[in-house]
């Protein structure tokens, strides 16, 4: 299949809006919010600890900073829509690799292997939601420093809804 045609780069720069700060719409319903916030924080800590080792750097000082990584997270997050009330959300984690153009637009996006989307309808729907998120013109092109293109020309986005799991 041909990579999806990129429309994002046709968007004028002003079309890229900074996503508004969002409150989890389920905060008022799910009782586990406290725990979730904790897990979110610990995830950030883990990312912080992992990032330097996980990135091959061309030259010292050209690594993506934590705030740049956080900016990507904040940019994609508003476009990741997940069906509310899904059962066993923890099993619906999907990793999607994206190939980016220099202007931050997504050239191609593919589901990383391991996700058996052909046999599992729920996982397939979750994977589609991830593909939609990275392709959504509302959340693209990604705002990343051009001088670090080698660092971010291929990224893996790990869409992990496990904190919604009621199990």
């Amino acid at each position: 299949m041909k990579p999806p045609k990129n429309t994002a780069k046709k968007q004028p720069p002003k079309a890229v809006k900074k996503p508004p700060a969002r409150k989890d719409p389920l905060d008022s319903v799910f009782k586990t919010v406290g725990k979730l916030k904790q897990s979110q924080q610990s995830d950030r800590d883990r990312t912080a600890a992992r990032t330097p080792a996980g990135v091959k750097t061309a030259a010292r000082g050209l690594r993506l900073t934590l705030s740049e990584i956080q900016a990507v997270r904040r940019q994609i997050q508003p476009c990741w829509n997940f069906p509310a009330g899904a059962q066993n959300a923890g099993a619906l984690r999907v990793r999607i690799t994206i190939w980016l153009n220099r202007d931050g637009s997504v050239r191609d996006a593919k589901i990383l292997d391991g996700a058996d989307t052909s046999r599992n309808a729920k996982l397939r729907a979750a994977a589609d939601a991830g593909i939609r998120a990275v392709n959504n013109p509302r959340c693209s092109p990604l705002k990343l420093p051009p001088e670090k293109f080698d660092q971010w020309k291929v990224l893996t986005i790990d869409f992990d809804p496990s904190k919604l799991s009621s199990e």
Binding site: N81, S118, I157, D160
Partner: peptide, 26 residues
């Protein structure tokens, strides 16, 4: 038709991974 067959090799896993864990329900 065109059922998704988007699996890619595991080599891509070596790239920088950014985890997002707070989906929207819009």
């Amino acid at each position: 038709a065109g059922l998704l067959a988007f699996a890619v090799p595991a080599t891509a896993a070596a790239q920088l991974t950014i985890r997002i864990d707070d989906p929207n329900f819009e």
